[in-house]
Design a protein around this nucleic acid. Structure first.
Lengths: 213, 213
DNA sequence: CCTACCGATCGGTAGG
DNA sequence: CCTACCGATCGGTAGG
């Protein structure tokens, strides 16, 4: 019986994970303030007292969801940086890997975007933990500038931040775009154009695929 | 005394506008569900019963805030389209005008972004009303493609949607960026890079200022 | 993990 | 536009 925070008995993991999964979805769709413990308990199939048993407070559930999301993100970032520095088609593969995390579950993007709005200071501190990794990507861009294959007037860190933010925002509201750009192949067209903008605004000349150092 | 929706007596405009102004701010900062009628009444300096007297329901306040925001946006869009089709430095001036509406009050961007998350279907319908204007911008891009000054592989509508969304998202979380890209000239650097990305990914060659048709 | 229950606050009404 | 008040729901507690 996990009365405190850290414990995790065998059967317990299932319950905690189920709660976190449904909480991610509901917080993403309706927001933290728009989701009651009752809503969440119903979605999981428990009584709300049981949620308190596992997490003590609603606020703790929010933090656990954020923590789990950022942990999964951290697992992926090193791989992204590696992709950005080795092999062929680096750029396309880097963007694709960055996008996948959010495109495979847009609720991650929605939850993160809501957190940016609800708790900007906390999110800023979290994102600063990723600074070293973003710095590595920025260094790659600086190197490309010296090599003459990347536009000299790119602001490397701002560019990286812009691409990350644009990816999250695009994925978060992906459903809305259909009304403007038409219902056919909406997601694919957005994805393609996002990559095109990111590539064309970065590299100097050969915009065709496979042309990156 | 305006008992119904449409009325507006002389002294009444002041109260309604005050309520809408504080509601925009609070909904932007804390979200609709995170703002109680009590919070709003305190901010305006009234009793919450008085808010109900003016708007009948909390939901009506949300709709009035959205309506007011979109009305102000609609006033600006035609001017933006005009700028995009005449005069020198069209591109820079077009982006600058598009950005100003949100940069002069980031709470507009925050509220709109929250609405996109809270009520995607409703926002989609609203944005569709702007479709003709966005279509005009897309037409300008298509013309530029024929003239050979804009990349042929640009997806015009998706590009326009992407720039609008990136602008709103950037302005909405502008405070967070300082943690990543440093505290100096943060906003200016973001603005500059956003314009650079938009310009470079659109025009084929002469990226220097003043070079647009 | 459930049942029963708590004070506080919610949006909204009534009456003036 | 205020005062007084309503039932419903909120997050959380107690006890098992």
């Amino acid at each position: 019986m996990p009365r405190a925070a850290a414990a995790n008995a065998p059967e317990d993991l299932g319950a905690r994970e189920k709660i976190l999964r449904e909480a991610t979805r509901l917080f993403a769709e309706r927001g933290f303030e728009g989701t009651s413990l009752r809503d969440l308990a119903d979605a999981v199939g428990l009584q709300k007292g049981s949620l308190v048993y596992h997490f003590e407070t609603k606020e703790n559930i929010r933090e656990a969801v954020l923590e789990a999301l950022i942990d999964r993100w951290k697992d992926i970032v090193p791989q992204i940086v590696l992709t950005a520095t080795t092999g062929e088609n680096r750029f396309e593969r880097t963007i694709a890997e960055s996008t996948r995390f959010f495109s495979e579950d847009p609720n991650r993007a929605r939850f993160l975007l809501r957190e940016c709005l609800d708790h900007p200071a906390e999110l800023q501190a979290r994102v600063e933990q990723l600074s070293p990794w973003l710095g590595l990507l920025a260094d790659r861009i600086k190197q490309g500038q010296k090599e003459g294959i990347i536009h000299r007037d790119v602001d490397p860190l701002v560019y990286v931040w812009g691409v990350v933010l644009a990816t999250i925002a695009t994925m978060a509201v992906t459903g809305m775009a259909a009304g403007i750009i038409g219902p056919e192949r909406t997601e694919e067209r957005i994805q393609t154009e996002l990559i095109r903008i990111a590539r064309t605004s970065l590299f100097i000349e050969p915009a065709s695929k496979g042309a990156n150092a």
